[in-house]
Amino acid sequence: MLSFALKRLGVAILVALTVSVITFSMIYLSGDPAMALAGEAATAEDIANIREFYGYNRPILIQYLDWLFRALQGDFGQSHYLKTDVASVIFERLPTTMLLGACAISFALILSIPLGVIAAIRPNSLIDRFALTIAVVGQAMPSFWFALTLMLWFGINWRLLPITGTASWLNFIMPSIALGYYVTPGVMRLTRAGMLEVLASDYIRTARAKGLRPLRVLFKHALRNAILPVVSLAAVQFGFMLGGSIVIETIFAINGLGFLAWESIQRADLPMMQAIVLVLSIFYILLTFLADMINAFLDPRIRVT
């Protein structure tokens, strides 16, 4: 288990380093960063000053290492637009996005696991068809359109829920549904497939033959095994969700990381953009690492491969 964990950790760190290189090289995508910062009216002297000030005249490798070591210490530099410390702004906004992500994934799991289980107990029944329809429809719905439609009906036409901001928990209902709905098809399909496979296995037949109560067989014996892949999918999807929250947060004007990312992109605030991409990527890497560990802990067969 320990050697497996160390191996995975090594890969995770390598991936994180590669991501940091990609994130760093973003500043050179638009050509000369000093020229982009200076704007169109700048003189050659201005550009040289900016180059000197931000250290763009050093060798690229030195610039990268400098940036990396500062980032490792939690220093992502100064925001070009807000003129404040990038890290403090990010950590101010992060909890809102985490809360939204947690609500969204809870909504998705609460909706999709029971539906998946019921669909697997009665394959090809009405409920199975209904679940399948939800899955197919959910995968085809553009998230921003779904969010706007929710807003239109629940916020404007029926006046049930507040449409923007984060004033109370009511504000989180629509964004969570809009963000979480997109995850439900995958989780539901995986639960259904896992349950179908497990329910057909010998040990379930044995458990039933022993005369255990059907519900006990279902939850204690079947679901516990079928839920394993769902755990890692949920972890992965949570990571994707934080990235995808940029759309939802922009629509509902939720002051989280996604909205910050969108604002920074609008303002061409490079240090902020870089930091957000890096933070979200590292968070995703951490999540998948944890999911791997949980799976390896629960299922010893994984540790060998």
């Binding site: 890969v11 390598l14 991936v15 994180a16 590669t18 991501v19 990609i22 973003m26 995508l29 638009s30 992965v236 990571g239 994707f240 934080l242 990235g243 995808g244 940029i246 759309v247 990312a261 969108w262 992109i265 609008q266 061409a268 953009m273 957000i276 991409v277 979200l280 990527s281 590292i282 995703y284 890497i285 998948t288």
Partner: peptide, 24 residues
């Protein structure tokens, strides 16, 4: 596998938005 893992850890919409805004 390594390239794939690296790619998966990048948030698609965010990176796409950032790159498009930088290149034009």
């Amino acid at each position: 596998n390594f390239i794939l893992t690296t790619r998966l850890s990048l948030p698609v919409i965010l990176v796409a938005l950032a790159v498009v805004s930088l290149i034009g």
